[in-house]
Every structure is written in C-alpha cells, then in structure tokens.
Simulated scan of single mutants.
Amino acid sequence: MSVVSAGESSRSSRSFWLGVAAYLAPTFPLGFFWHLAWFEGTYRALAIYRADPIIPLGLASMAVQAMIFSWAYPRLFPADRGSALKAGLLYGLVMGLLSWSFTTLAVAAKHPVASIVDYMVLETGFTFVQFLIVGPLMALAHRN
C-alpha cells in the first residue's frame, strides 16, 4: 500500500488538468477550422455531416476525450525519463492511431460517404496534425 503525499497529489491533479487543456486548446480550434472553414466545401460534398453542426456536443465530446487522454498519459509513460518531445511524439502516434481507428475507419465503415477515399484522406490528415500537436503538449503537461 502506498501513501501519496499532498504535494504529489496536487502535482498529479495539476498535471491532469494541464493535460486536459493540452488536448482541448489545440483540438477545438483545429477541429472547428478544419471541418467548418478550411475544408467545409469538401465535407459538404462528402455528404456525411449535418448541415447545422451542434458545436456544444462536439465540444462535450472533446472534453470527454481530453480527460481520458490526460488520464492515460502517466499510465502509459509512468517513468518519463526521456525528452518530453520524444515521449509526446510517441504518445501522439499511439493515441492518434487509436483515435483514427474510431474517427476515420469506423465512420467510413458505417456512414454513407460520397467518397471514402476523400474522407479517409481528410480525416487522416486531421488526426495526424491534431496528435502531432497534442502529443508533445500532453507530455509537457505531465512532465515531472
């Protein structure tokens, strides 16, 4: 049985919430601009998304993801002795692949999309950019 000091618990809580911010701060604006501005016409042509997206539901989804991804980081990298950049890029690769499996592969498999190839290219690009940013930020949030 281990006893966690108040300082360790406070640091752990602080790292958790910094990790949540490390996910939300880049993901929400990137997702908003990627899907609703930069590639909005392409997504409209794919006929996969609603004409009037419900932004609060998207933000709520991201908040749940942020908490899970932040909770997972110290469990996947418990003894982060390497560089934050290296650990973050590895974390981004692993979590990006997981995210890609349910946000790209599963969606393409279940939803009527005008072009599966175009959808997969766009969403793969989004997920790659997202976790290229989020991974290192998450590592910085959780560094000791």
Rank of each mutant, 00 (worst) to 15 (best):
residue 2 S to E: 13
residue 2 S to P: 02
residue 3 V to R: 08
residue 5 S to C: 11
residue 7 G to H: 05
residue 11 R to A: 12
residue 13 S to C: 07
residue 14 R to S: 10
residue 15 S to R: 06
residue 15 S to F: 03
residue 16 F to I: 02
residue 17 W to I: 05
residue 20 V to Q: 02
residue 20 V to D: 00
residue 21 A to D: 09
residue 21 A to I: 04
residue 25 A to I: 10
residue 27 T to E: 00
residue 28 F to M: 05
residue 32 F to G: 06
residue 33 F to T: 05
residue 34 W to S: 09
residue 34 W to H: 02
residue 37 A to Q: 08
residue 38 W to E: 07
residue 39 F to P: 11
residue 39 F to V: 02
residue 40 E to F: 01
residue 44 R to G: 09
residue 44 R to Q: 11
residue 44 R to S: 03
residue 45 A to H: 01
residue 45 A to V: 03
residue 48 I to C: 04
residue 48 I to Q: 01
residue 51 A to E: 02
residue 55 I to M: 13
residue 59 L to R: 10
residue 60 A to Q: 07
residue 61 S to A: 13
residue 62 M to I: 03
residue 63 A to K: 00
residue 67 M to K: 08
residue 67 M to Q: 08
residue 68 I to K: 09
residue 69 F to S: 06
residue 69 F to Y: 13
residue 73 Y to N: 06
residue 73 Y to V: 05
residue 75 R to L: 14
residue 76 L to R: 01
residue 81 R to I: 11
residue 82 G to N: 04
residue 83 S to I: 12
residue 85 L to D: 01
residue 87 A to C: 09
residue 87 A to K: 03
residue 88 G to C: 05
residue 93 L to K: 00
residue 94 V to I: 15
residue 97 L to Y: 01
residue 98 L to C: 13
residue 101 S to G: 09
residue 103 T to H: 02
residue 106 A to M: 13
residue 107 V to T: 12
residue 108 A to K: 02
residue 108 A to Y: 08
residue 110 K to T: 14
residue 110 K to E: 14
residue 111 H to P: 00
residue 112 P to K: 15
residue 113 V to G: 01
residue 113 V to Y: 03
residue 115 S to R: 12
residue 117 V to C: 04
residue 118 D to P: 03
residue 118 D to L: 06
residue 118 D to Q: 14
residue 119 Y to H: 08
residue 120 M to Q: 13
residue 121 V to H: 08
residue 122 L to T: 03
residue 125 G to F: 11
residue 125 G to D: 10
residue 126 F to N: 00
residue 126 F to Y: 15
residue 127 T to C: 13
residue 131 F to M: 12
residue 131 F to A: 09
residue 133 I to C: 09
residue 133 I to L: 14
residue 133 I to S: 09
residue 133 I to H: 09
residue 135 G to Y: 09
residue 135 G to C: 11
residue 136 P to H: 09
residue 136 P to S: 12
residue 140 L to W: 15
residue 144 N to I: 12
residue 144 N to H: 15
residue 144 N to C: 09
residue 144 N to T: 12
